[in-house]
């Protein structure tokens, strides 16, 4: 990947991001509202009985919601719109590599998502009196790898969207699947054991578990962390491979 090209295009993408009021609203406001709404959902579960603290659950939930709402959903919209308006095809005629074309629109959203997670998680920690993360490197690895995974998943998802309108449907299905299979809105600890064991190997679950274990220090041992990291990397590689194979650069004829 040409870093000069990526930096140049990312600057342009940041300009475009800041000029789009709807994007700013979707990326900066919607996730906050959903995180706040999710606290009500979490109160329905017996978290204490599952050995969980509400504050810790909300921190990891924030990671999932922010990655899905601030990165996955809007990025699908941007990719499909650019494809339908022949912007991607035009970019491919120049010296810019395919990976840079795909990565650059994700950069401002990824930065916004990471900053947003940091701010909301800090606020939750302050309100719930959680203190600093026990293993901050695991939190960082989870969020950063999760960012790459979600960007690749967004690119792959566009293969199933024929138009800008259908992109909304595809992103809705995608983020619902990611939310309910990852422990983001329903902690795996309150689910039946065998079912939760299977979900631990779903794409976004390692992000939630790395963030939570990184904050609590529980389950932050080498073996558990490596398994989660490897699972996350495997899904990221699979999504990236699928995206590079299936991504369409121009509208269907």
């Amino acid at each position: 990947m040409n870093r000069t090209h990526l930096a140049a295009l990312s600057r342009v993408e940041l300009t475009l991001f800041l000029r789009s009021k709807s994007n700013l609203f979707n990326v900066l406001v919607i996730p906050v509202l959903i995180v706040m709404g999710t606290t009500t959902v979490m109160r329905q579960f017996d978290l204490k009985g599952a050995g969980l603290a509400m504050g810790h659950v909300m921190v990891s939930t924030t990671a999932g919601i922010v990655l899905i709402m601030a990165l996955y959903a809007p990025l699908i919209g941007v990719y499909v719109l650019r494809r339908e308006e022949y912007v991607l095809k035009r970019q491919r005629t120049g010296e810019i590599g395919d990976l840079v074309i795909l990565a650059s629109p994700a950069v401002p959203m990824a930065i916004a998502a990471v900053l947003q997670f940091t701010a909301i998680a800090a606020a939750v920690a302050l309100i719930a009196g959680l203190g600093a993360p026990a293993a901050p490197h695991l939190v960082a690895v989870g969020v950063l790898l999760g960012t790459v995974l979600i960007a690749a998943a967004a690119a792959l998802s566009t293969a199933f969207a024929r138009t800008a309108e259908s992109a909304q449907g595809v992103s809705t299905v995608g983020f619902m699947l990611l939310l309910v299979t990852s422990g983001t809105v329903v902690p795996l600890e309150v689910l039946p054991g065998p079912f939760a064991d299977v979900l631990r190997f779903f794409p976004l679950t390692p992000v939630i578990e790395l963030v939570r274990s990184g904050w609590t220090g529980e389950g932050a041992g080498m073996v558990d962390s490596v398994v989660r990291g490897a699972t996350l990397l495997a899904w990221t590689a699979l999504a990236a491979w699928g995206a590079l194979r299936r991504f369409r650069w121009e509208p269907r004829a």
């Binding site: 342009v12 300009t15 475009l16 000029r19 789009s20 650019r82 308006e85 022949y86 912007v87 095809k89 035009r90 005629t93």
Partner: peptide, 10 residues
């Protein structure tokens, strides 16, 4: 291109 697009907000 016969049909090539650009980001319209630039």
């Amino acid at each position: 291109l016969q049909r090539g697009g650009f980001p319209t907000d630039l």
